[in-house]
Amino acid sequence: MDTLNMRTGGQGEPAVLLLHGLGATGAVWAHFSVLLDRRVLVPDLPGHGPSSPLPHYSFGTLAAAVARALPGTGPYVVAGHSLGGVLALELASGKYGVEVDGVLALGVKAEWSQDDLGRAATFAARPPRVFETREDAEQAYLKVSGLLGIAPADPAGLRETEGGWRLAMDPAAFGVGAPDMPALLAAARCPVVLAAGEHDPMSRPEQLRALDPDAVVLAGLGHNAHVEDPAAVRALLERFGV
């Protein structure tokens, strides 16, 4: 049976579900979640941190695993970063038995080249790399999660193993592929806010505005805007009454 590590706290409805991006853990939401005056649920996605890996990774299998781990059917307001933003949109389709009142999809990579997909497939096929020291593994974790220079490594994102240290992340998770953003947006049964940092190299504002002319550009911020300026991103949830 798969297990999903879930951080919880606070009181008040609707609860807010926070979904991290590929390579990170729920710890990236630590400074963000304390700004919310309601119940907060922050999972480590399958194959990340102490959460169990999946036999196959797709947006559907990841969203289904999150839905199974929730304490009830909602309603939830869901904020997701990068991969987590795609999963938030998946959940908003209603296919997983979860009631979603609103979605904030932050820093989602909307356009994928064949080179992008090829690199991801290569990473997914590799065994976990073993580093001689914990410090080297921490640096690798921060690079993979895009957190180098803006946050410390989450200890739950590392694992001691024979010969040294490795990332806790299952490399196969890189094989999720590219999301069909137009279809996901069309299927969402709730209001959706698309947002990205002005300097996000993975989620260019013009790409998001091609999907939604009202997409929000967060001035001066990069890919992990929720870590760089939690208050600026938290303000976007006010659109859902949160």
Rank of each mutant, 00 (worst) to 15 (best):
A120K: 05
V216G: 06
Y57I: 04
A178G: 01
W29H: 01
W29K: 07
R68S: 10
A105I: 03
V130H: 08
P201Y: 04
R134L: 13
A125R: 12
G85M: 08
D229I: 03
P43D: 10
N5A: 06
E206V: 04
P14I: 06
P53L: 10
R166A: 04
A137H: 01
S33I: 01
A215T: 02
L36W: 01
A235C: 03
A105P: 04
M1F: 07
P201C: 02
G163Y: 05
K143R: 14
A210T: 00
Q114A: 11
T133W: 13
S93K: 09
R239M: 11
T73V: 08
A69F: 05
E160S: 08
A195W: 00
N224W: 09
F32V: 00
R234Q: 15
P75K: 09
T161I: 07
H199S: 11
E228H: 14
K143T: 12
Q207R: 04
V98I: 15
A120D: 00
R239G: 13
P71V: 08
E228A: 09
V103G: 01
Q207E: 13
G84Q: 04
W165Q: 11
P171F: 15
N224K: 09
V130Q: 08
E111A: 15
V103Q: 01
V217N: 04
P46G: 15
D180E: 07
G222I: 12
D214K: 11
V233L: 02
A187N: 09
L83H: 09
R39D: 13
S33Y: 06
E132C: 04
P171E: 03
P191L: 04
F123D: 04
F123P: 07
P182Y: 02
A67D: 11
H81A: 11
E90I: 00
L148S: 13
